[in-house]
Every structure is written in C-alpha cells, then in structure tokens.
Amino acid sequence: MMLTDRHFGTSFFSAAGGGDPVLFQHVFWFFGHPEVYIMILPAFGVVSQIIPTFARKKLFGYSSMVYATASIAFLSFIVWAHHMFTTGMPVAGELYFMYATIMIAVPTAVKVFNWTATMWRGSMTFETPMLWAIAFVFLFTLGGFTGLMMGVAPADMQYHDTYFIVAHFHYVLVTGALFAIIAAVYYWLPKWTGHMVDERLGKIHFWWSAISVNVLFFPQHFLGLAGMPRRIPDYSLQFADWNMVSSLGGFAFGLAQVFFMYVVIKTIKGGEKASDQVWEAAEGLEWTIPSPAPYHTFETAPEVR
C-alpha cells in the first residue's frame, strides 16, 4: 500500500503538470479506486466486531471474511479504469475492466452472506451500535448492487456522471463508511469515556438519520436514471419533484448529525457508569481493561488465551 502511495505521490503530480488528460485520469483513479476501498475496508472490520457481540455468536466464517477482505483489496488495485468507460478506451480494455469490476461483487456478497449467517439463530439485542451496524448491512448492500450495475460497461454508458452515481457512492460512503464510524463511536464510547450512552437519545439519532438518509439519497437513483447529470447547479423541470424530496431529506440528515454532537458531549460529561465489559458478549482485549481506558495500557504484556 505504501508503494502505491509513493507511486501516487510521484506520478500524480507530474501527470497533472504535464499534459495528457487521460493519463491523468488513469493515474488519479489508480490511486482513487483503492482510496475508496481504504475507506470501506475498516468499516467492514467494525461491523464484523459489532454484529457478533450483539448476536452473542461468533462471526461466521472468519477465515473466508479475511480472504474476502484480501481479495477486495487486491481487486481494488486492478479495476481503476471502470471510472473511465466513457473516455474512449479500446474495447478490449473496457471488457477487461468490466469483468474485473463485477468480480468484486463475489467477495462482497460473501461478506454480506457471512454477516447474515452470523445473525441467523443468534440471540440478538438491539442496542444503538447494533442498529447502526444492521443499517450498514442493509444500505451498504443496496449501494453494492448499484455498484454492480455500474460495473457493467454498456449500462454505465448511460449511468456515468449522472445522479445514479451520486446515489451509489453516497450509499457506500455515507450509509457504509459513515454509519460504520458512528456505530463504532457508539460501541466504544463507553470504553473511552467511562459513561454509557443514553440509549433513548442514541435510538432517536439512529431512526432520525436512517430515515432521512434514505429520503435524501434514494430519490437520486430515480433522478440519475431519468437523466440528470451530476454537478449541475440547475436542472430541467422534470427533475424538480425528486430534487425537492432529496433536499428535504438532506436538511433533516444534517440536523441529525448536530444532534449526534449533543449526544456525544452529553456522554463525555457524564452518564451511567460503564462496566469494564460494557456489552454483555463483547470479546477482545480492549474489554479486559477498565472503562474509561487508562492513559497507558498494557505496560505488562497481557495474557492471550
């Protein structure tokens, strides 16, 4: 990964300073595509921690999860040009990038199946972090499917640079990466601060966000398919209705995050005392140390069973 970044650091600038715009795009996306996967892979990790805890059941297929993560990471390096189907690549190039791109659907599907299997016949409770993690599984799956649709090159000729793309990457990054971060914050906040999060407020934040985020981004699928290009400040009249719906959802979702700040600050200031274990079935070394975590941990090496 470091090697790629170095690669990014060097050729990125020279290509931009030079002159060939398509080469620039190749180099940018050679960096840019792994970049978006860097954002989503830790999210997979977070969700794989939270779901087993609240399902009270071990993560299903741990080793296949690891293989899936590794193959997604590997594939992410060889599919960069699927952002560029319309730049006039040779047909052979387009075919290759199409095949490689839809291949990513396989390990991603394995992950979703594994989470499902983890929850299957578990003994679930639905604290705030679990709600966020479940929302992640549902909504990220939707984002993954639209990603698959765009991976098919001839169809992408229509989807490319429309609001369909905007809807896709917001489903992946907002309901994917951002939801996972929020889930992680709710999950580990008791460990960080020593106080439990107010469950009622956390749940309000969850439902408020989960509903408004769909109002915000789901209509954008319709807009994109109906032919609204992205990054335009003004649009023709047939797009008016769904844009208004989307805007309303957007304002609501924005407000929800200000509410999130209130919840976090309230937890830092005080609240019900958290136990060391915090969650009934949480596993891992971080749950063996006191809550809040002391400034220096593990000055003597812990015993790993």
Partner: peptide, 16 residues
C-alpha cells in the same frame, strides 16, 4: 425471530 427478548439461545455454529 432470533432476538434475546424472545428467549432465543445463540447457536454455536460459525463455520461451514
């Protein structure tokens, strides 16, 4: 169905 409040006991399978 598989929620604790309904008395679901966690199964132990985690690989297949």
């Amino acid at each position: 169905t598989h929620r604790k409040s309904k008395g679901a006991k966690p199964a132990t399978f985690h690989e297949s």
